[in-house]
Nucleic acid binder design. Structure first.
Lengths: 144, 144
DNA sequence: CGGACGATGCAATGCTATTGCATTGTTTCA
DNA sequence: TGAAACAATGCAATAGCATTGCATCGTCCG
């Protein structure tokens, strides 16, 4: 029987190499969006460049989407199953916690339709909210 | 009579040095948001670090706001008069043109109120739309 | 006049993303 | 089976933006 992780990659036409399975596994286990450095740390012995190219491949194949949360580093999170390489369905809000610096997807909060002057052709909308996440909101300010 | 540019700085409690007046002048003349490198180029003989610190000061004093448009470089644009250092009123949509790579503020397009689960404490909302701007939309794809 | 303070500018550094190139591993086909 | 063809990997090196350290300069104030 083929491993579920392998099936996920094959469904996206990505060759299921060991490294890619490891990266996918990390992404699936982690609820928050991960930066390149995050993945590198979580995998211990992984090469930074290989992880970088793996995430690039994943993005091009529509398996993950990029999130620019203003932290300086681009983060990555798994897409919904219906995403395609041409059209990322990451039309949900992303939340960046200024305390724990974690970025999470809020799949239940849709990005509203916004009307622009007719001359504009919109290809993509990115909506990032910043503040305190559910876990950090109740904790008084302190150095973690 | 005090120069209008000086008045703007003094109103924000920023000492009106020549360099700051130059940077402010560039920002006022330019309709699109400018990156650090943009300002540096437009001022020819300005030092990159000084411009950087000038923009940092302007941001802290509530004169300009930072825009992360995903181009890799942070861009800056003048705030509305009612902005304060504590609360930036940049609650308008920003538009990043993927063709001319210019980022512009759309003051007339407000960011809609978005309800999050109660546990979240929102401090800031950033909404960037990407596509073709009014000027580039009519031009057929070509290498500029 | 002289000290204090802020602003400026040069040099150097850190961090993230990215490319070049050689090696490894796997698939394909004769 | 064996060898070419191709993709994936990993080390080294580079590029670009942001940032800090430190010395200098200029101005304001006592």
């Amino acid at each position: 029987m083929v491993h579920p992780l392998e099936e996920t990659l094959i469904a996206r036409q990505i060759a299921p190499t060991p490294m890619r399975l490891l990266v996918l596994d990390v992404l699936q286990r982690h609820p928050a969006a991960l930066s390149l450095a995050d993945v590198e740390l979580l995998l211990e012995h992984a090469d930074r460049i290989t992880v970088h190219r793996t995430l690039k491949t994943f993005t091009e194949k529509g398996l993950v989407h990029r999130i620019e949360d203003g932290s300086g580093a681009v983060k990555f999170a798994l897409c919904e199953p219906q995403c395609t390489p041409e059209q990322h369905h990451d039309l949900h809000v992303h939340f960046f916690c200024t305390r724990c610096r974690e970025t999470s997807c809020l799949p239940t909060v849709a990005v509203p339709t916004i009307a622009l002057p007719a001359a504009y052709q919109v290809q993509e909308t990115s909506l990032v909210m910043k503040g305190l996440c559910a876990g950090c909101a109740g904790i008084p300010t302190s150095i973690s």
